[in-house]
Design a protein around this nucleic acid. Sequence first.
RNA 1: CGGGAUGUAGCUCAGCCCGGUUAGAGCGCUUGCCUUGGGCGCAAGAGGCCGGAGGUUCGAAUCCUCUCAUCCCGACCA
Length: 564
Amino acid sequence: MRISRSFIPTLKEIPADATIPSHRLMLRAGLMRQLTGGVYAYLPMMVRALHKAERIIREEMNAIGGQEFLLPALNPESLWVQTGRRNIPNFILSVKERDLVLAPTHEEVIGWLGAMHIQSYKDLPQIWYQIQTKFRNEPRPRSGVLRGRQFTMKDSYTLDRTWEDLDTGYDLHAEAYRKIFSRCGLKFFVVGASSGAMGGTGSQEFMVESEHGEDTVAKCPACDYAANLEIATSGLSAVGRATDHGAPEKIDTPNVKTIDELAAFLNVPHERLAKSRIYLHDSKPVLILTVGNDQVNETKLGAALGGGEYRAASPEDLRATTGADAGSIGPIGFKGRIIADLRLKNANGLISGANVNDLHLRNIDLTRDVPKLEYADVRSVENGEPCPSCGQALRVTNAIELGHIFKLGTKYSEALNIRYLDESGQSQLVIMGSYGIGLERILACAIEQGHDENGIVWPAALAPFDVHVVAVNMNNSDIVLHAHQTYRQLQQAGLTVLLDDRSSVSPGFKFKDADLLGMPVQVIVGEKGLKNGQLELKVRKRGERSMVPVDGVVAGVQDLLKSL
RNA sequence: CGGGAUGUAGCUCAGCCCGGUUAGAGCGCUUGCCUUGGGCGCAAGAGGCCGGAGGUUCGAAUCCUCUCAUCCCGACCA
């Protein structure tokens, strides 16, 4: 493609609204423009990169027996009412004029097709996938293409007879995903994840470590343990039992509010302090007890509560339900459900609030003093805690979710009545899995991992073009001749080539653009080299330059591409 | 949904507190000349309902009210 005839609107200045590198560079390199919040127009460079990612995905999905579909983004609202997902908050965008919604994912449509046409065990298993635009009612789109209201997703679904077959389809997907992301040149890792209300027996996420990621994960540097913080555990020991000093007794703690203040005031270790938080679960107060400054993980809490809506209580709620303010709340005398973190299992000798301001209780024994106490893992793992499987210090970092694979089970089969007849003529529920990859996130992650102060450094597998040929001066007929000749030769060798043949653009400008656009190899056609019958090759990644004779340019470029 | 910020030329911004000629700069764009190995130079131009609506005032980009949009932090995120 010749730049002189192309639409590649590069920007010299950094767009004010973009804060993370991938977002800035996608705008600066002319990949996309924002139409409205969370919605982007993808320009030719972006589309070429997307197509390259799509091709890799199709190859790997087809390799595991996937069949490609293209399902409608417009769905009847009633289908989503059937599965109970119509009114999930911040999920579905709808159409004003008709009872239609814009699909945020496609379990429902897959289910509709499956219910209609899967009849016999002979029809199973199936792997169905598509690459298609999704819509979500994101309350706060951000970070460019990382969280948008409209985005491209490869979604696939397995339909199986048994849980064992589901495992097979799930494992095939896990392996395909590894290949896809490896081929895309991304450094990624896999974490155990929360299946949340999706139900089923398990889920994993494919993550790229990034300070700009919105997920938090715990990773073990020594073994292969890695988990989303929503389910991560650590080897941190329970606080256990201490010497018993009898019944709970009151202690005055004037103006002592935080755990740190309390530990200092009483001169006791944090492990003997049980912190209470109140949540409202379906409008009923629930008290959550954790050790010291341990943080409550709300996803874990949601699982422990067993569904329903919940939120942290407001200061007014605290006063109304306990009679005290934050800092003086405790389990003794609390009327309502109490859930203690597993680290507090059967603990005694604890200090907690007395539900009277400026008053605490000591010698609390959970086994003796708190009837009907429930235990659950509700705390967030902290950086540096021991790995649950090998004991090494865990690292807690942010990450971008590239893909997510779910064992769904029968949730949608039940809602949509997706059934087949087994060998004995019995009607059975189909067992489903669902698997997603965010296409734009692949590109954004590639840029987050591959850029420098001058611009994008595309991995060869995703680069819009293999080679960027810079004709230094279009007023020099020798340069023009060799630039076009090089362009043709590289194309004939099967490479995709971008030729900067703009006249009246200075060499410096072209070099800056070439670095910004980020193709893996640049060929510089200029007077300097041609004097000696040579062209210059530059590797974008490390900036290495070399000279090749004019007739050796194809081989030279191919060698460099192979070496990347 | 809570908190914060910003809307002035295609882009990045100044001007606004403290109201008053014809609203500015740099970049980009057009034309001409010049230059050709790291966003080149000179000159002449085009380009704005100062996000929108109401109000205060003799007079509003500037003050007030409302509204819309965008960004950031948090909440949320099947």
